[in-house]
Simulated assay, not measured.
Amino acid sequence: MNSIWTINEIDLTIRVLTAAALGGLVGFEREWSNHAAGLRTHILVCIGSAAIMLLSIYGFNQFVNESNVRMDPARLAAQVISGIGFLGAGAIMRDGSKVSGLTTAASIWVVAAIGLCVGAGFLFAAVLTTVIVLISLFALNKLENQMMRHRRHRQLIIGVIDKPGMIGNVFTQLGEQGIQVTKMSLHNKYEDQPVTEMKLSVKVKSHIRLNQSIELINNMEHVVSIEINLL
């Protein structure tokens, strides 16, 4: 039998363990960042992909010499790439205009590719891909946050006494500072006096203008509380 269609138990074990290690490195970053798909999910995906690749290449070696059988090691691998989408879709969540989980879904897909590389013995590509993925998730994430922190959406929670014109005054103040309100909800509270809680999603270009606007709003008459959150 041609040796390219066979693999010994030691090499097989090394490939599966390598897949677990590389998948675990990516999964650790997701786990550390408190994402839905973490360490165990990425390890399982990478091991599973490696196992399917090993099966595709070596699992049917007894049929190599059959005249009517044509070996195609890429056939099962192709199904992994398309089939892994259901896991990625489960990691993506949408809340209004906000979509989260895309990076985790992409990391699951990439880990599947890493597992296929390991299973096929393409170890250099697997290790190189893992290193680049980790750089993207760790370093580039921090760089992106640093560059985009002034252009992020923020949520303002403003409590105002229920007086005519108060909501309009708040919007006027935000508009004068060039702050765009993208979403609003109102909630009435009745404690010592009627209070309207305004939840505003705002698009910020300059945190300095936002701070100035918050200070001015906070000093307005009938404003009882103000809170800011990063979305």
Score class of each variant (00 low, 15 high):
51 A>S: 14
45 V>N: 00
89 A>E: 03
88 G>K: 03
201 S>R: 03
195 V>W: 04
77 A>E: 02
54 L>T: 03
21 A>T: 13
54 L>I: 14
61 N>G: 06
41 T>I: 11
121 G>Q: 01
151 R>T: 15
161 I>Y: 03
114 I>M: 06
129 T>L: 11
9 E>C: 04
161 I>A: 01
219 N>Y: 01
197 E>R: 04
118 V>Y: 00
69 V>Y: 15
48 G>I: 08
229 N>H: 14
225 S>C: 02
189 K>I: 09
70 R>L: 13
192 D>C: 02
183 K>M: 11
227 E>C: 01
168 G>M: 05
68 N>W: 13
154 R>A: 08
188 N>K: 11
67 S>E: 09
8 N>G: 15
24 G>I: 00
107 S>Y: 00
33 S>K: 14
158 I>L: 05
12 L>Y: 12
19 A>V: 12
201 S>E: 09
79 Q>Y: 14
89 A>T: 05
72 D>N: 04
143 L>N: 06
150 H>S: 15
206 S>K: 06
128 L>G: 06
137 L>T: 03
139 A>T: 12
66 E>K: 08
180 Q>F: 12
230 L>T: 15
139 A>E: 02
157 I>E: 12
44 L>V: 14
102 L>A: 06
143 L>H: 07
176 E>W: 02
155 Q>C: 13
137 L>K: 08
164 P>E: 12
29 E>H: 02
55 L>K: 07
74 A>F: 11
100 S>C: 12
141 N>E: 14
82 S>P: 10
188 N>M: 14
69 V>T: 07
5 W>C: 00
185 S>M: 07
58 Y>M: 09
63 F>R: 01
164 P>F: 11
19 A>H: 10
48 G>C: 10
113 A>P: 01
205 K>C: 00
129 T>P: 04
138 F>H: 07
9 E>I: 14
19 A>E: 07
46 C>N: 13
134 L>T: 05
32 W>D: 01
62 Q>D: 15
103 T>M: 13
29 E>F: 02
192 D>I: 02
58 Y>E: 00
218 N>Y: 06
94 R>T: 15
41 T>G: 12
227 E>L: 04
16 V>T: 07
44 L>K: 05
107 S>E: 00
50 A>C: 15
228 I>L: 15
117 C>H: 03
40 R>A: 07
214 I>V: 13
122 F>H: 06
26 V>M: 08
87 L>H: 07
214 I>N: 02
122 F>Y: 12
37 A>Y: 00
28 F>A: 13
36 A>R: 02
113 A>W: 03
83 G>E: 06
116 L>V: 10
56 S>G: 11
175 G>T: 06
13 T>V: 13
144 E>P: 04
25 L>N: 04
105 A>G: 14
184 M>A: 15
219 N>T: 05
91 A>R: 06
62 Q>N: 14
34 N>S: 11
153 H>G: 08
25 L>Y: 07
209 R>Y: 12
222 H>Q: 09
115 G>L: 07
101 G>F: 02
219 N>A: 10
107 S>P: 00
13 T>M: 11
151 R>F: 15
60 F>E: 10
124 F>E: 07
85 G>P: 06
181 V>M: 12
227 E>W: 03
146 Q>H: 14
13 T>A: 15
196 T>E: 11
101 G>E: 01
48 G>P: 09
196 T>K: 11
